[in-house]
Design a protein around this nucleic acid. Sequence first.
DNA 1: AACAAGTCTGAAACTTGTTCTAGATTACCG
DNA 2: CGGTAATCTAGAACAAGTTTCAGACTTGTT
Lengths: 216, 216
Amino acid sequence: MTADAKAAGAGTAHPAAPPLTERQEARRRRILHASAQLASRGGFDAVQMREVAEAAGVALGTLYRYFPSKVHLLVATMQDQLQHMHTTLRKRPPAGETPAERVAETLMRAFRALQREPHLADAMVRALTFADRSVSPEVDTVSRLTTAIILDAMGLDGRPTAAQLSAVRVIEHTWHSALITWLSGRASIAQVKIDIETVCRLIDLTAPERAGQDTP
Amino acid sequence: MTADAKAAGAGTAHPAAPPLTERQEARRRRILHASAQLASRGGFDAVQMREVAEAAGVALGTLYRYFPSKVHLLVATMQDQLQHMHTTLRKRPPAGETPAERVAETLMRAFRALQREPHLADAMVRALTFADRSVSPEVDTVSRLTTAIILDAMGLDGRPTAAQLSAVRVIEHTWHSALITWLSGRASIAQVKIDIETVCRLIDLTAPERAGQDTP
DNA sequence: AACAAGTCTGAAACTTGTTCTAGATTACCG
DNA sequence: CGGTAATCTAGAACAAGTTTCAGACTTGTT
């Protein structure tokens, strides 16, 4: 409960973000922390709103004022974790030679991080794909963060082309869906690795100056 | 990939399918029909177990004996619908010239079918991606059906190579995830089309030996 | 300092998925 | 047929997400 000075400062990109007082910010942080902790223990089902409220030291009604549903809460938790991951990944950029290699390497690094907390991954990813329209803005934020991570890994010179953005979208699709199959035990880690590497080859198809990717 | 999914040898899709009496088969059909009907009205949330039971004319306990959870029920519903679609698609095979074109065309046809019942699509796809391990066998069956549809569309001569199967897996990932983004209003129909076409280009990368251009 | 508006708390209530139980029905076997 | 095991029904009961409400507490204003 020590107030760890997390700069965060990530201005919530919402159109009408009401300014939170310090205690409110602290409450929000406690809630997210409790959410992640419970999720780490037992995944989606273990994140029970009453328990989150108790662990965070707030009333149930307050929890719902901050996060209007369990899915909102878990998507916000994912936002939080992704932000961590983004800064972590930035410290050691991928070493691959081609954009495709770098993206695959980055995603595999993220995947390894998720493997360390599979239950947390379960809670976040299930919430993300289960989210309905009422959570779209938040899910979109997560999506933009993911896109940013991938574009970062590609290490482009200028702005990405439309074709590259399409490839990134498809990579994101594959990433989410492959995670789901892994989490539900229908795909092995090796399988996910193959899928990621396979889809990343799409990037090579979209290189602006793709003269001869395959030597004749 | 776990080894528990036996092909059952029997040929029918159900592993260890206990022989159902006629009345039981009828009950099962009534339940699936009620499920699809309610789903068509209001999507995932509109499929309420009590209502399904009532509409199907069975007791709640019986419904749970046939389908041990709402997700099981909806995944079975999807299995049912997919089977329809498979036979429908087979009647008019895609006309594209390359495998990639044919797969894209097939998926777009399926997509158009889903657009006619967006609520039903919502219920089925959300259930599919929300399913946890306890539904893995059923989800796996759906996955195999989808794979079969795609392989059918590719129109291969022999058995698919490992690379081709990887591509198909990635296409499936993209298909599911793109549907999710469309259903939750975060992607337009046009966007989904682009994603499908983009990912289908992966197929061209996996042609066994440049077999497309010059066949001896 | 006092007031008004907004926020937080604690607890109960409501909804819907899921489980359980006792008795009625049905299917199967001799 | 008669009997027995399995299945089905009706309904209560339980679990967890969500809503609601009265009252206590904060915050900002004058």
